[in-house]
Nucleic acid binder design. Structure first.
Length: 116
DNA sequence: TGTGTGACGGGCG
DNA sequence: TCGCCCGCCACAC
């Protein structure tokens, strides 16, 4: 792989998470555990969430399409604005009620299943 | 070098 | 049924 630059000292794990998140189709959402499982880091969903925090340094990372297993926008407070995450999701036709994605099971996008 | 933290998930009382 | 605890691995101090 490309030699690690001082400015790009991110591990492949982070980049891997970014790639998966960028593959999430509009109007769809996924969970941290699903991405972690797809990366083979099942049980380490926390790492995915950590990578999403660092995703702010990168562009084209629709982190707002990633929610927890309950479909709740747990990471909204990490966005530019407290309601930015909800606004982005609603902009794609996703209904949000009380920081929770409506019809989450229907909008759920599993990378290990859809992307395969 | 070691300790603590964290946008989670699953299990147990 | 609701709530609490433990486990996972990478990064920051």
């Amino acid at each position: 792989m490309a030699k690690p630059d001082a400015a790009q000292k991110r591990t492949n794990f982070f980049q891997d998470v970014y790639e998966v998140v960028k593959l999430i189709p509009p109007g769809r959402v996924t969970s941290y555990g699903a991405i972690a499982a797809y990366l083979g880091a099942k049980g380490s969903a926390r790492m995915v969430g950590w990578a999403l925090i660092a995703s702010h340094s990168q562009q084209g990372i629709p982190a707002y399409r990633v929610v927890n297993r309950n479909g709740m926008l747990t990471g909204k407070q990490h966005f530019e604005s407290y309601d930015a995450m909800q606004a982005h999701l609603e902009g794609e036709g996703i209904k949000i009620k009380d920081d929770q994605v409506q019809d989450f099971e229907q909008l759920f996008w599993d990378p290990a299943k859809e992307l395969l």
